[in-house]
């Protein structure tokens, strides 16, 4: 089942002589439970693509489908749902280079915040948070302040937060950049497990050479155009 499909996505900044085409007809298709890499040099359009996929920047043209449902179609006037907050909250997960956890919430509430924002009860939200924290092996720090966690633990909590509302897609922006090789591969393994367990498609934007062999499929992006390539799809054991 296709989790996310992108067809002919373009993004133009500015107009007239100063117009810049950051994306020039991107096509992508990612299945549920699949982890793909998005690789490209600086200025290639990675961040623009991520912002379009994350519903924070409106594409100029094209079509995006999430879990079989069209969320953007320039032929239909752009975003189908005008409530982009709800779209991001319920259907897209985010993992950043730095965990960017909310420092004034404890570990559980950082994860439970999303279901709460979606209207679930505090109890249901915390149960869901605990389930994810257990799956990511950080349940023992559930009541800790996020500033007391190690970098690896913080990244696990960030992954749990991204999964909290069971979104069909997670956008991971250089999630292993601050980590050493061992921890980076652990994070990639976790992302792979979570994708498989929760049937979530994960797009990992990265420059990190050490994790590139873990992808089965890689999208290279250059000058706003994507090229697909089959990856090695090695596991942690295969790499070590």
């Amino acid at each position: 089942m296709t989790a996310i499909r992108i067809e002919g996505l373009t993004k133009r900044y500015g107009s007239g002589d100063t117009a810049v085409d950051a994306l020039k007809g991107v096509d992508m298709s990612i299945a549920a439970g699949e982890v793909v890499g998005l690789i490209g040099p600086s200025g290639s359009g990675k961040s623009t693509l991520l912002k379009c996929l994350g519903a924070v920047t409106e594409p100029t043209a094209g079509r995006m489908t999430l879990g079989g449902e069209t969320i953007f179609d320039s032929g239909q006037g752009g975003w189908i749902s005008k409530d982009l907050h709800a779209l991001r909250r319920d259907r897209i997960g985010f993992v950043f280079q730095a965990p960017y956890l909310i420092p004034f919430l404890d570990v559980t509430d950082n994860v439970a915040l999303l279901p709460m924002l979606a209207g679930k009860s505090n109890n249901q939200s915390r149960l869901r948070a605990m389930e994810l924290l257990r799956a990511l092996d950080v349940a023992h720090r559930a009541k800790a302040s996020v500033v007391q966690l190690s970098g690896g633990e913080q990244q696990r909590v960030a992954i749990a937060r991204a999964l909290a509302n069971q979104p069909p897609v997670i956008l991971a922006d250089e999630p292993t950049a601050p980590l050493d090789s061992e921890r980076a591969l652990i994070v990639m393994t976790i992302l792979g497990q979570m994708a498989s367990q929760y049937q979530t498609a994960i797009i990992v934007v990265t420059h990190d050479e050490k994790i590139i062999p873990t992808f089965r499929r890689i999208y290279h992006i250059r000058d706003g155009i994507t090229y697909e390539e089959q990856g090695e799809g090695r596991t942690l054991q295969g790499l070590s």
């Binding site: 709800a86 779209l87 991001r88 909250r89 924002l117």
Partner: peptide, 16 residues
Amino acid sequence: IREIAVLKLIGTRDRS
């Protein structure tokens, strides 16, 4: 401001 950006990105409404 970074936390606010993250809160907005993960779907927290402006009114919240």
